[in-house]
Design a protein around this nucleic acid. Structure first.
Length: 425
RNA sequence: GGUAGGGUACCGAAGUGGCCAAACGGGGCAGACUGUAAAUCUGCUGGCGAACGCCUUCCUUGGUUCGAAUCCAAGCCCUACCA
């Protein structure tokens, strides 16, 4: 099966700059996709890009992961309604390392292997580029009409916030990236989300004008869930690949909670499971949706890829405990392990013992005010060690502390908080 | 620089001297139901308080008034059109 067909059958294809791309992919070629160094960890929202690169590498193509150290300093206007906060150079540097580590869970960067991917940072070729150089050597190949016609520009110009010159120039820099990679590595294909179309074509056109060569762009659809929300956020928080930012448990849970309407599509996009296997899971989903086998398969596959068997085991164990009912029989240290990434606070014993629960929860910072805590308890939404707090006025007692030092507080079905107690000097 | 219109809670948006802690919608949170679902239904959504209530809020600073989100003045910021 041609790799393009693979993409098409897995919702990884939206558009391409030329049908010739199919032929080009019959040979081994060099491809790249960009990542923004806005954070030191990639997020679930980056999965699609990662997967398309991984598919290509598996098919034998040479893969370049470009990190936008320079472009990240500027900010891509595409799909943003507001100008982004600019990053400082030191932060970008730190973020690069994290990103490479994340990527290596999907893509092989090992120089010793047969077809290693490489990572490049566009800051390396932009840092010595002067403004005059840019205008003289690159700027003249960009036409105003085309630049102003880009969707990303038009939308922003029509918006209330307008657009700065800095952001407007973003497409020039990204276009130049492609030119540089073409000249340096013979790279002939850029991948990106459909919101990157304008930036990608800026590159293919620049290469054509300056080198007379045909290079290609391909986009994949932006993943949204069935309610139209952008994929990869859970209650407004991004799902990170770095376990220090998103725990094994939260990562696993995020995928486990995928909607029925989304899960099959997600399996195709985010896993390497065969289409046959996915068809089986779809069958199961239709016949017995309450078993959620498809969701489990999705969560397991991704957690295993990103966090290994160990991470998966922790996530499943935590899930079992938290949705299994009682916490009885679990040691405090075990709970601490399971809830390693859950928000927590430590209070001195005298601020906890025999104090009203509402007081304790707001002091610990779990809830923003005593009123909120009281309200939540009145509605039956607070649990201590998995037991509902029935009396909104009750106080914290000795029996609420496991081993005298820790309590698992929950609000609603799945928001956990660990309260630790310190025993003074 | 000129002219016009704006800045109200997480967002959108009413309110234009007292009945305003501030309508309504969205979002969010919780509960019931469920499959850790969707849909639906219920409650909540500035702080303190068990509660009558009290306190701090409607860009900022002053002012008018018994009383201001609402009127006046200055300032800051945003938007549109023009230059």
């Amino acid at each position: 099966m041609n790799i393009l067909d693979t993409f098409k059958s897995r919702h990884l294809f939206e558009d391409m700059t030329s049908p010739e791309l199919a032929k080009a992919l019959d040979k081994t070629i060099c491809v790249y996709a960009g990542f923004d160094p806005t954070n030191d960890s990639l997020q679930a929202g980056n999965f699609v890009t990662i997967m398309t690169l991984a598919h290509l590498q598996r098919a034998g193509h040479k893969v370049i992961a470009l990190v936008g150290g320079a472009t990240g300093l500027i900010g891509d206007p595409s799909g943003k309604s507001k100008e982004r906060n600019l990053l400082d150079a030191g932060q970008v540097e730190r973020n690069l390392e994290g990103i490479k580590e994340n990527l290596s869970r999907f893509i092989d960067f090992d120089p010793a292997s047969k077809n290693p991917a490489i990572m490049v940072n566009n800051y390396d070729w932009f840092k010595d580029f002067t403004f005059v150089d840019l205008l003289r050597d690159v700027g003249r190949y960009f036409r105003m009409g085309v630049m102003l016609g880009k969707d990303s520009v038009k939308k922003r110009m029509d918006s209330d916030d307008g657009m700065s010159f800095t952001e407007f120039c973003y497409q020039i820099l990204q276009g130049y990236d492609f030119l540089h990679l073409y000249k340096t590595y013979g790279c002939v294909l850029q991948l990106g989300g459909s919101d990157q179309w304008g930036n990608i074509t800026a590159g293919t056109e620049l290469v054509r004008r300056m080198c007379g060569a045909e290079v290609y762009g391909m986009t994949f659809p932006l993943v949204c869930d069935s309610t139209g929300k952008k994929f990869g956020k859970s209650e407004g928080n991004a799902i990170f690949l770095d376990a220090r930012k998103t725990s094994y448990y939260d990562f696993y849970q995020f995928f486990l909670r995928a909607h029925d309407a989304d899960v099959i599509r997600y399996l195709k996009i985010f896993t390497f499971l065969t289409l046959e296997r996915i068809a089986e899971l779809e069958d199961s989903l239709n016949k017995a949706p309450e078993r959620r086998e498809a969701q489990q398969a999705l969560a397991e596959e991704l957690t295993r890829t990103v966090h290994g068997e160990t991470g998966l085991a922790v996530a499943k164990k935590a899930t079992q405990v938290l949705f299994g009912g009682s916490l009885e029989g679990l040691a405090a240290s075990e709970l601490e392990n399971i809830f390693a990434n859950v928000a927590s606070a430590t209070l001195p014993i005298e601020q906890v013992m025999n104090q009203p629960v509402s007081e304790v929860l707001s002091a610990a910072g779990m809830l923003s005010s005593k009123g909120e805590a009281r309200r939540l308890m009145q509605q039956g939404g607070v649990y201590i060690n998995n037991e509902r707090v029935a009396d909104a006025a009750r106080s914290f007692g000795q029996t609420d502390l496991i081993e005298g030092r820790l309590a698992v507080i929950r609000s609603g079905k799945r928001n956990f908080f660990i309260l630790k107690v310190s025993h003074g000097a």
